[in-house]
Computed example of a mutant assay.
Amino acid sequence: MNLSSKTREAIVGYIFISPIILTILIFTIYPVFAGLYYSFTNYQPTEVQKFKMRFIPEEAMMFHTGVFPDEENVAYEDIAAIFDPVSFVLYDVGVNLNDKQVEAVKKYLDSERLIKDFLAGNLKEEMSVADFMKKYMKSESNLFKRYIPDFIGLTNFKKMIKDQYFWISLKNAFVYSIIVVPVQTLLAILLAVAANMNIRGRGFFKAVFFIPSISSSAAISMIFWLIYSKPGVLNRFLSYFGMQPIDWLNNPNTALGAIMVMNIWTTAGYFMVTFLAGLQGIPKTIYEAAEIDGAKFWTRFWKITFPLLRPQILFVSIMGIIGCMQVFDQIYFLIKNMRNITVSYYIYKNAFEYHNMGYASAIAMVLFLIILVITSIQRKLVKEEAFF
C-alpha cells in the first residue's frame, strides 16, 4: 500500500508522541474517570484483596463448630444442626459480605458437601476464598471472584453536605488561597525586578531565592517545625522583646497562618523565575522612553512592568490557586489538629486512614470542579494580552 508523504509523516509523528499520549492516558485521564466512578460507590481499599485471602477450611470449620474431624461419634446431623453458612463465612473465614453476597451464601452454599468433606478430612489444604466459594457455591460463585464496590449513587455527596470537617477543610483551603496567592505573586514580581537589575551579586541572590522551591518539602517542613516549635528559634527571638512563647503549630489560631508564611517563602522564588523571563522579554526602549519623560521607578513599575507581565501574572495566579487548593504536604507534616486541615489532607485521611475511598473520591471530584470553575473564571476575567 502506497501512502502519501503527508500520511507517512503523520504516522511517524504519532509514533514519536505515543509514549506521552499513553502516559497522559494512564496517569491523568484514567485516574480522573476512575475517581469519578468510585465517588458513586462505597469503595473500600482494604477489601480489594479479601477474595484472594488464603485460609485452611478445616481450621475455619473447627472454629465454627467446635468439633475436630477425627473425634469419634461425630455425626453429620450434629454439625448440620449448628452450622450457619453466613456466620461461618463472615466470622470464621473472615470475609466481609454485602447484602447481595449474604443472600447468595444463604441460598447457594453447599453446606452438606462442606460438612461431609470436613468429616472426611478433605479440607486440610490451604485455598483462597475465591476458590473455596467456587467449589462450594451451587450458584452465584461469580459474586466472590473479585471485589466490586456497591453503587450507592449520590450518597457520598449527600454525606458531604452534613460533614462539618469537609466544610472546615474547604474554608481553610479558600482562606489559604486568598491570602497566599496574591502575596506570593506580588513578592515574586518584586524579587524578579530586583534580580533583573544590574547589581553585584544578583546571581547569588537568584540562587538563594530559588533554592527553597527545589528543596525537599519534608526537609523544609522539618526546618520550619524547629522554627515554630515552642522552644524554637522564633519564640527565642520574640522572647527578647518580652513575649511569651507561642505554640505556633498546635494552636488552631496560628497554625494555618504559620503554614502560609512557609508556603510563600518556598514558592515565591519559583515564580520569580517565571516573572524574570517575562521581564527579560520587555524591550528596554520602553523604559528608556519613560525615563526621558521623567517617570520614576514606581511609576515605571506600575505603568509598564506590571501591565506587560499580565500573561505571567495569569499563569502564576492560576498555578498558585491550583497549588494552594491542593496543599497537602505541609499540613500533613506540621498540623495535627482537625480545625486547620485542608481539603487534600481530608481526602487523604478518608482514603488511607478511614479506608473510605469512595467518600474520598467524591470529595476529590468536588475539589476538581471547584478548581476548574475558579481557573475558568480567572481566564475569563483576566485576559493574557498585556495592556497599558
Rank of each mutant, 00 (worst) to 15 (best):
V93P: 08
S221L: 01
L381H: 00
N122M: 10
Y346F: 07
N142K: 12
W225Q: 14
G320F: 00
K159Y: 00
F68G: 00
K135F: 01
R113P: 05
Q49G: 02
V382M: 14
L154G: 09
V48I: 14
R8C: 07
L367M: 14
L143D: 13
Y270T: 06
L170M: 14
T267K: 14
T7Q: 05
Y136K: 08
K284C: 04
N235L: 11
A34T: 11
V32L: 11
L123R: 06
F210T: 03
Y176S: 08
M338N: 15
E58L: 12
L381R: 10
P45L: 06
P311G: 10
R202E: 09
L22W: 02
G66F: 09
K284I: 10
V32W: 06
N356A: 04
T285L: 07
G281K: 05
L308G: 06
N142V: 05
I178W: 06
G13V: 03
V373M: 11
K230E: 14
V181L: 12
I21K: 04
F51C: 09
L279T: 04
S217D: 14
Y165F: 08
T185P: 04
V102N: 13
K145V: 10
G232P: 05
A268M: 04
Y30S: 08
I341G: 04
F328K: 11
L25C: 12
I321K: 07
T23D: 01
F132K: 15
I26K: 13
S141G: 09
N337L: 05
F27H: 02
T46N: 08
E71A: 15
S216P: 04
M365I: 14
S317Y: 01
A173L: 03
L191A: 06
T274Y: 10
N340T: 10
